[in-house]
Design a protein around this nucleic acid. Structure first.
Lengths: 223, 223
DNA sequence: GTCTATATGAGGATAGAC
DNA sequence: GTCTATCCTCATATAGAC
C-alpha cells in the first residue's frame, strides 16, 4: 500500500539537493527499464545498474518496488496533464476551439516524445500493473481524458465539430494517434516539428466542419 | 530458437482435430494472459488455468514458453494483415484511394476489436519481448506497414492527399489511432459500427484534399 | 546514504507415471 | 496426451557493516 506522500513527492521535496538528485536518477532509470521490460520484468537490479548504484539503495527512497513503479506511472500521466493544461491556460480566452485543440496536440506531443520513457512506460503497462495501481492510474487518466472531452465538446457547441462524428469516440481516437507516436517516433528520421504539424493538420481537418473551417494556426506561447 | 514450423502452425495443421482444438485453447489463453500480465508476468500456470489443463501439457504443443509467446505475437499481426489484405483485394480495381482507405479502416477495426486479446498482447508487448522475438516481430509489422504506406501513397499520387501532410507520418498516426482503439473500446458502451463510422470519417477528412473530397462510402464485401 | 550478505519464495522446465 | 513430483535459478527484501 503506497503512501500518497511517497507517490506525490516531486524532485525538490525530499532530503537535500544531492539526495534528491539520486532520487531523480533512480526514477528516470525505473521509467527506462519499465518501458522496456514491463511491470513483471522490471528488476531492481536493472534499475540500479541504470542509475549507477546497488539495488538495496533504492529502499532508502521508496518503501517497495511497487511504490517506485507506481510513481513512474503517476509521473507519466501527471506531467503530460500538467503541461497541456498550462499551455491551454496561457491561450487568450477568445481562442477558437479548433485552435485550442491544435495547441493541445502540440503540447501533448512535446511532452510525450520528450519524456518518451515515461510515456511508453505508461502506454505499455497501464493494462498490466496490479489492480491497486491500476485503479489509481485509471482515475488519473480519466482526469486528463476529461480535459480533452471538454475541448471536443466546446468545438461541438460552436458547431465547429462535424456532426457525423461521435464526440467521445473521436476524442479517444485522437488521443490514441498521439499516444502511439511515442512508440514509433525516431528523432533521427522525423523532426518533432514535422510530426506536430502533420498531427495538427490531420486532426483539425479530421474533426472540423468544412463550412466552419479556419486555417489560421496558433503559436502557443513558450512551448 | 523457435522453429518456423512451430510458429507458423495454423489451427488445422497439427495432429488430429481434437488435439488441435486443445492447441487453439492454449493459444487463446496465452493471448489473454500475455495482454494482461506482460511478457515477464505470463506464467505457464496462469495460461494452463485459463485453458483448463496443467502447465506441463503446454510442452506437448510448444518446445518452450518463448515459442508459445512468439506465436501469439505473430498471430496477432498476421491475422490482421491477412484480413485487411483480403478485403482490399475484394474491392473493384477502380475503387478510389480514399474509399480503399475507408475499407482498410473498417477491416482493421473489425479484427483488432474482435480479436482484442491478440491485439492488446501485441500492442503492449512489442517493445518488451526479448530481442530475438522482437526482430522477427518488427519484420512482420513492417510488412503490414507497407500495405498502409501504399494506400496513402496512392492517395498522394492521385492528388487526393492534402499536400501539407507528411505521408509517412500521417500513416503512422492513423495506424496509432486504430491500434489504440483496442485499449479503450467497450462494446457495452459503443457499438463496433459507431467506432468504425467515426474513425472512417475522421481519417477521410483528416487526409483528404478538400477540393477532391468525395463523400461516397464503400460497403466492403463480407466484413 | 550506500554497500555486502543472505533468508525466503516463486516459477520454468524436465523426468517419469499412467 | 496429460498429470505429479522435483530441481534449479533468480529476484525481493532485510540485516547489519561502514
Amino acid at each position: 500500500m503506497p503512501r500518497k506522500a511517497t507517490i506525490k513527492a516531486t524532485p525538490k521535496d525530499s532530503p537535500g539537493p544531492k539526495s534528491s538528485r539520486t532520487r531523480e536518477r533512480i526514477l528516470d532509470a525505473a521509467a527506462h527499464v519499465l518501458s522496456r521490460k514491463g511491470y513483471s520484468g522490471t528488476r531492481l537490479g536493472d534499475i540500479a545498474d541504470q542509475a549507477q548504484l546497488q539495488a538495496p539503495a533504492i529502499y532508502y527512497y521508496w518503501p517497495s518496488r511497487e511504490d517506485l513503479i507506481e510513481e513512474v506511472m503517476w509521473v507519466g500521466v501527471q506531467r503530460l496533464h500538467e503541461h497541456v493544461a498550462e499551455i491551454l491556460d496561457g491561450l487568450p480566452t477568445d481562442t477558437p476551439p479548433m485552435d485550442r485543440i491544435s495547441a493541445a496536440v502540440e503540447a501533448h506531443l512535446h511532452v510525450a516524445l520528450q519524456l518518451s520513457d515515461f510515456a511508453t512506460a505508461v502506454i505499455r503497462n497501464s493494462g498490466q500493473v496490479p489492480e491497486e495501481i491500476r485503479t489509481r492510474q485509471l482515475a488519473e487518466d480519466a482526469k486528463y481524458g476529461a480535459l480533452w472531452r471538454k475541448l471536443i465538446q466546446d468545438a461541438e457547441t460552436t458547431g465547429d465539430l462535424r456532426s457525423d462524428l461521435d464526440a467521445r469516440i473521436a476524442q479517444r481516437l485522437v488521443i490514441g494517434a498521439l499516444n502511439w507516436a511515442a512508440e514509433w517516433w525516431n528523432p533521427r528520421r522525423d523532426s518533432l516539428d514535422s510530426v506536430v504539424r502533420t498531427a495538427q493538420s490531420l486532426i483539425r481537418h479530421g474533426l472540423s466542419n468544412p463550412s466552419h473551417l479556419v486555417q489560421r494556426r496558433v503559436d502557443p506561447s513558450g512551448v
